[in-house]
Design a protein around this nucleic acid. Structure first.
Lengths: 154, 154
DNA sequence: TGAGAGTCATTCAGATTTGAACAACCACCC
DNA sequence: GGGTGGTTGTTCAAATCTGAATGACTCTCA
């Protein structure tokens, strides 16, 4: 229980803090941009993107929840909001009576097409365009390792 | 207004998505661990850490808000919570009558010392220990570039 | 077939966050 | 001094998130 904790050394601490601060700052900036441009939150935007990419522009709630990294109850809430805005509709799943399909409407697709450029611009300006190709690759490798472990154990 | 948007190519998209998913998954895992270990939220933990490192274990609200990347109003709320738990106290700033100092109490320090090892363990297990020294460096470089721009423009 | 275990999405209450509005204070300049 | 603009921290209502509990459905295996 009381093993000596393996504290982070200077390099490790620097890496962790940089990652933590940056992810929060970037999240804040993205949220701000999406709100101003379209009255969307970042989770909402992420939902629209995933649906747009899915076959038939539709996905099961649970699958969507995993993909977009949103709690199931948060997803229920957000889909309701998006439904009110006319960007998404709910349909019952033909193959599983319990299941619910979130379906992207045409209005939702248009909304996404309208908003995406500005969003990508932010992602570029603050992250992607600041990094060299090598840094980009290194980051991807690193993030994917962590993601894999977290998805496996989650 | 309608310049061709510079979409992300495959490598860029992979980097962005990996970063986004990972930061959310890791955040979730950390939140879970802190809650279970000490009933703390991640923002609360971050506040305690910053205070513990500050000279006199105290900081001005605004400075703390910037450091921990928490909104001013969220900080006000969280400091109130931490005060109720006896981990932090408020004091008026001697040099500026408007100012408020958040001060870490002895109980707050002890709480932090008790919780920190488990928290670091999670950060290691899912992120730091998964990466080579080179990957760590690359990530730090990358994150810091973004952080700098966001702090400058925020 | 039918009981039992697991999955699916939702619900609810409570906690937290957001952002604008606000009052109090500081600093500078005329 | 007295104004003016900027800063500081808080407040408030509304929005969102959390996590446990729930009801409805599916699947498995005997």
């Amino acid at each position: 229980m009381t093993d000596d904790p393996r504290w982070l050394d200077e390099t490790e601490m620097a890496a962790w803090r940089a990652f933590l601060s940056t992810s929060h700052l970037l999240e804040r900036r993205i949220e701000e941009q999406l709100k101003a441009a379209a009255g969307l939150t970042h989770p909402q935007y992420e939902i629209l993107v995933r649906l747009a990419e899915a076959p038939g522009r539709q996905m099961r709630m649970t699958e969507l929840s995993r993909g977009a990294v949103v709690t199931k109850s948060a997803l229920t809430y957000q889909i309701t909001q998006l439904e009110k805005a006319g960007l998404v509709e709910r349909a019952t799943c033909p193959s599983d009576e319990r299941g619910v399909l979130a379906v992207l409407t045409d209005a939702g697709m248009r909304c996404l097409e309208r908003v995406a450029p500005g969003h990508v611009e932010v992602v570029r300006e603050y992250l992607i365009d600041r990094l060299s190709r090598e840094e980009l690759q290194a980051m991807t490798t690193a993030m994917r390792k962590t993601e894999a472990v977290l998805r496996a154990s989650g």
